[in-house]
Design a protein around this nucleic acid. Structure first.
Lengths: 342, 342
DNA sequence: CTGAAAGCGCTTACAG
DNA sequence: CTGAAAGCGCTTACAG
């Protein structure tokens, strides 16, 4: 029954109505009589007609697509977030394009070009290292309400940000360690230029102060969130004369890399050093000692980000006050923390 | 200098040539005199012109997009493959759309619709559970050369398949275990309906036979590739009267789940039971004991799949003999295997 | 090498 | 409620 690809004219002919009526029964059925609707639907079934997206997009100046900018698609940390984004967006009928921002360093279009291209209706950015100039340009443009940040963000911009409650996470980590009796603590942070690095570090130190622990002599190490940098942190830790008894890591992967290296060196976790991570990636519960960590609801993050962006597409004007949606986090106590040795 | 979005007419006016010349200098510059090209490029710079994709797509009946069908975007196993796909495709100027096949169970278009929609130029499928009827329909259609499978596949179809050398991987695992002196072996496989399950299981058993080990009494357990199913396998293993001394797992995640559970129960890996995985995911080298496994080049898999599909887009006719590209695998020896106890 | 013009397949103001 | 017609922004045979 189907063979040659059919277009709206074929359907119009088949059903004996105008192309306008065909188009309307598809886009605004309430404008069309039931009788016509039925004829059109029959004809569509008979012809196997499908609306041509390119034509519709050209006509309506819309793309039905959302671009997601990810710093590294190969990093499993993002997978749950992306899954949440995809689910919500595809449910609303959007195509989801993923762009790895590391890959197209060279020929990458400027952010604004994605819009002027007619390539996207909106952009979701998971990359805090986004070029400032391009963001400023977008901010002043008519596309300002079509951009949102997830997880990471660039400070001093007015785009919505959907992120975890990093401050609370860091505070929970500090309080947990303090409650166990630790006094000499350390922090393995992300890279200095990353937004999350500052927020989590400050949150951790502030919470220590509030708990009556004078800060200033903590051991601080800057990693890059990866397993390997956890190993590096361990190397450095092992050189220390006076080692902290408890450590807060800005990512689970770094915590895991650290535990592995330090265990190989003969130390015991948590007896010799308590370790608490951040993220609660799936494997955290499966390594031994099972990792105590801060749970981030990554799926929810993606979900909410998609919803927020969709909301933004409806308004032409960007919201006046910068919109920040903070997702709750929680301490997940497992085996990698315990009271310090006397 | 840029404000209102400009179109090809603006550029034509600005440069004093026809829209045809503008279009040509962008798409087929060799057809245009250098003088005209220069005028056009100047005008483009001045106006900030960008080709409207929807219009070009409509006109050329092309989409410049490739759809990637993934069974579960949240599964980190796929991330490296997707990264390879995205890199290769975006380098060639394609948009990459990811669709989670679990998500859109309901409103998912039939495969053929993605083409008739004008939504894609090609489809890359990572999901062996693809509906057979839709594949048959595609196979007979004009789109037959625009589809390729990666990692997994559906048997008895003529689409290209880009996959790892699963047979060799299973053989290497068997030979490694046998070389260590193991005689009583077991296999934790994927789910029965998965293509990889059969291939890896058969490869393993055949290699055992060839090594002079009579097969038939191995312990076989069907998991689903996940950490949790590795734990389940361990539960079952612990009940066994006469336990195998060496186990081959169809995924690293299952191997890791198994090690964790069995270690909690007081067994020692590898002394009490040798474990070998499949995949070589990054964490495999960081757990303890470090996991002996079979390396799959996931990035390369994605890369080659993208190239193969792109190649297919150039030909109208599907290749006569089904195209199968097999990527080499290798044994990665670490700490989770050793000779059996006497 | 260049331009005028048709047309890709839709949607939607406009008129009835 | 319906249809005729314009037009979204390109590309490309065709003629010169």
């Amino acid at each position: 029954m189907v063979d040659k690809k059919s277009n709206i004219h074929d359907v119009a002919r088949e059903s004996g109505v105008s192309t306008a009526s065909v188009s309307r029964t598809l886009s605004s059925p309430e404008l069309v009589s039931e009788k016509t609707r039925k004829k059109v639907h029959d004809a569509i079934r008979k012809t196997g007609y499908r609306v041509n997206r390119a034509a519709r997009n050209l006509r309506t100046k819309t793309t039905n697509s959302i671009i997601v900018l990810v710093p590294n698609l190969g990093n499993p940390f993002f997978s749950a977030i992306l899954s949440g984004i995809e689910r919500t967006l595809s449910k609303e009928g959007y195509n989801v394009l993923f762009c790895d921002t590391q890959n197209d360093i060279e020929g990458a279009p400027r952010l604004r070009d994605y819009f002027e291209d007619g390539r996207t209706d909106g952009i979701l950015i998971l990359d805090g290292a986004c070029p400032d100039a391009e963001l400023r340009e977008l901010e002043k443009s008519e596309y300002a309400s079509r951009v949102a940040f997830v997880c990471e963000w660039v400070p001093k911009h007015s785009f919505p940000v959907i992120r975890s409650d990093n401050e609370k996470g860091a505070t929970l980590a500090a309080q947990h360690l303090v409650a166990l009796g630790h006094k000499h603590l350390g922090h393995v942070a992300g890279p200095p230029e990353n937004v999350l690095t500052g927020v989590r570090k400050t949150g951790f130190l502030d919470a220590l102060e509030s708990s009556g622990i004078s800060t200033g002599d903590e051991w601080i190490y800057n990693g890059d969130f990866s397993l390997e940098s956890g190993v590096q942190a361990a190397e450095s830790f092992l050189q220390l004369q006076d080692r902290p008894t408890g450590l807060f890591f800005a990512s689970d992967l770094m915590a895991i890399g650290f535990i592995t290296r330090v265990t190989d060196a003969g130390l015991k976790v948590p007896e010799d050093v308590s370790v608490i991570g951040f993220d609660n990636i799936e494997i955290a519960g499966y390594i031994r000692p099972a990792l105590t960590t801060i749970r981030q609801s990554r799926h929810k993050l993606g979900d909410l980000a998609a919803q927020t962006l969709l909301e933004g597409l409806k308004h032409t004007e960007p919201s006046l006050s910068p919109l920040i949606k903070v997702i709750d986090v929680a301490l997940v106590e497992r085996q990698s923390t315990c009271p310090p040795k006397k």
